[in-house]
Design a protein around this nucleic acid. Sequence first.
DNA 1: TTTACTGT
Length: 337
Amino acid sequence: MAWKITIQVTSLACVGLGGWFTGTLMERWKLQQNTCDWSRVNQNSPDNLLYKLKRMPGLPIFGTVSAASSPENKLAVLESGLVPFESSPVSSKPVRVSQIMKFGFPGLDTVRSFDDYVLSYDRRNRVPHWVFEHLTKEALVYNESVDRSKCEFTEDTSMHPYFRSLNSDFRGSGFDRGHMAAAGNHRLCQKHVDQTFLLSNIAPQVGVGFNRNSWNRLEKYVRKMTRTYKNVFVCTGPLYLPRRDSDGKMYVKYEVIGANSVAVPTHFFKVIVAETADQKLDMEAYVMPNQVIDNSTPLTVFQVPPESIERAAGLLFFDQLSRDKIRKINGRESTTV
DNA sequence: TTTACTGT
């Protein structure tokens, strides 16, 4: 039965990749030795098998993109038995992706799914459009075997060379290589934290006063939300906001750095949906300027209506979630629209 | 604690 399911999974996303898939299956045991123990954090997760389901450029793995894009299809995926139980040898990776993307994809441009986060890449600006993460307190428990200092920023070879950012673009620029999916959110195992150091997950950020201070405060606050919420879903990305110039007209102006002209976003956003144990949903949305911010500034100063980010970024957040299911937005009881 | 640089 498990094999039948596996074949169904294959046919969904991997038509014409039979040889690759067979090879992947052959690696099963090898992979099992070297994977994270998801069962520690999710009893419904099986041991990982197709763990090395490599990022296939342009390929929405397991049809996750199309599958989750419509509510019907998403339900079908969740209820079809393709979501495996502990005894099933079906990969946990597609399951993990559907967990992370439970509320829908904000956009569909150049999507990559990693073991613990999902990313959409902006090839023109050579930074992410958005990254999506799912945090729980169980997955954030301190793991002494995970060492951030072993990590190196690495170019993402799944992107065409024209569109990659390189370490040389950042060197001497004065900007930090700022994580969108934060390293500190993926401490379950070394492989997960390593994957956050791919340069496709990085955008130029002001270091002292922003990335290392207020933006870091916001990231820590999101992690802290897992103390009171069972599930925390967070989408993070850059913004390029217009500004009025001296001629009175509005312009979008941003610096680009390095030989690859990596864009320096004017702002960054986070949109968070936090779910209580009894499925109550609270939403928070933040926009912070990519500049030195006084460390005493309360994070609430940066709260904005979520739809203002959607309009500015060209994205739709939590599209699969009807807004009347949301209890609070930015701490306020949401009133019926 | 986590964020990350430059200079050696």
